[in-house]
Amino acid sequence: MNHTAVAAVGLYTVLNTVILFWLIVATSRLRRRYKVWVGTGGVAHLERVMRGHANAIENMPMTLLLLLIAALLGTPVLALHLLGIAFTIGRVLHAWHFIEEKGAPWQREAGFGLSGLATVVAMAVVLGHAFGFVI
């Protein structure tokens, strides 16, 4: 097992957990500001931040799992870093879009694009290993 490759995936797992924590803090602040303890209370900004958090939870685990599998299958550390960086920057931009009360569309588009591309490439890498292609 290449411990450096697994450590690289660990780095991006930690960074993406920081992004999740950022979204949790943003949600908590809005809940306190508007005194909404369950649901959204009809507060559009709270609904927006909660949707951003849900989107992160929907997307981060599978991509990070794909990166871990790729690392365990022998994917070069540089490739894992490139995928991890692209995915993490994409998730930062995406979260930023949702945390802002009126986030710029480019943040969501770039965030989705980068993180989506990293996910698709990670899928291809794992599939390549599964079918015996050298990646």
Rank of each mutant, 00 (worst) to 15 (best):
S115N: 07
L15I: 08
E101M: 08
T13W: 02
G52P: 01
A8P: 01
E47L: 11
L114M: 12
M60K: 03
L114Q: 01
V77E: 14
A122F: 03
A110D: 00
G10H: 06
V126H: 01
G128R: 00
N59S: 12
H129N: 08
G42R: 09
G116R: 04
G128P: 05
A79M: 14
T75A: 13
W37H: 13
V125Q: 02
R29F: 11
G10D: 09
V6H: 05
W22T: 01
P61G: 10
G39F: 13
A122R: 00
S28C: 12
T88G: 05
G128Q: 05
V134G: 11
H94P: 01
L82Q: 13
G10R: 06
N2C: 09
E101T: 07
V49Y: 02
E109T: 11
L82N: 09
M60I: 15
V134Y: 08
L68A: 07
A95W: 00
V120R: 07
F98V: 03
S115F: 02
E101R: 12
V25Y: 11
M50I: 09
R32Y: 13
T63H: 07
A122P: 03
G116P: 04
E58N: 12
F131P: 04
A130E: 08
M1T: 12
A104P: 08
T27R: 06
V6S: 13
N2M: 10
Y12H: 02
G10V: 09
L46S: 01
A104L: 12
P105K: 07
R33A: 15
A44C: 07
A118Q: 01
V120E: 08
G42C: 11
G84C: 07
T4K: 13
A71Y: 01
S28K: 14
V25M: 13
A110G: 04
A70L: 08
M123G: 12
G74H: 13
M50V: 12
I24A: 11
L15S: 05
E101P: 07
S28I: 14
R33W: 11
L80T: 03
V9Q: 00
V134Q: 13
L67Q: 02
M50E: 15
P61M: 10
S28D: 10
M62P: 05
A110H: 02
E47Q: 14
T27V: 11
H129F: 15
A79D: 14
A70N: 06
G10A: 10
I85E: 03
A8M: 09
M62I: 11
L80F: 12
V120Q: 08
L67E: 01
A95S: 12
Y12G: 00
E47W: 08
A5Q: 02
F98I: 04
M1E: 14
F131L: 10
H53F: 04
G74N: 12
G52C: 08
M62V: 14
L20D: 00
V92F: 05
R32L: 15
L73V: 07
A86L: 06
V121N: 09
S115W: 01
L66W: 01
L23F: 05
T75D: 03
T119A: 08
P61C: 11
G84N: 04
E101L: 06
T13L: 07
L15H: 04
A110K: 03
V25L: 14
T119C: 10
G90E: 02
K35Q: 15
